[in-house]
């Protein structure tokens, strides 16, 4: 899976769950501020991402501070998948 494909899929998943509706999810925009993704929604989203990509997030990453944007989630997933291939 390419980085762009991961980004696209994650943005789609955020779009479906975001309490503040938006046509597009920008990779660099704050999830809480712009899309209403609070810690509750974030954890639900991360559980869904774990299932979709068959990965597990580190406990310490489960915060709005760590995953403040769609881009940071996509980077994390990309690195996890790349590490699994190696």
């Amino acid at each position: 899976m390419t980085k762009e494909e991961i980004e696209l899929k994650i943005c789609e998943m955020i779009k479906e769950r975001a309490p503040i509706p938006s046509d597009t999810i920008r990779l660099d925009e704050d999830l809480r501020e712009n899309y209403g993704v609070d810690s509750l929604v974030l954890v639900e989203l991360l559980v869904e991402i774990e299932c979709a990509f068959d990965i597990t997030f580190d406990s310490s990453s489960l915060t709005n501070e760590f995953f403040s944007t769609a881009g940071t989630i996509a980077d994390y997933v990309y690195q996890r998948l790349a590490a699994a291939i190696l």
Partner: peptide, 11 residues
């Protein structure tokens, strides 16, 4: 983090 893990466990 514990709060979020608790939520994750519940989900």
């Amino acid at each position: 983090i514990a709060a979020n893990l608790s939520l994750k466990l519940g989900i």
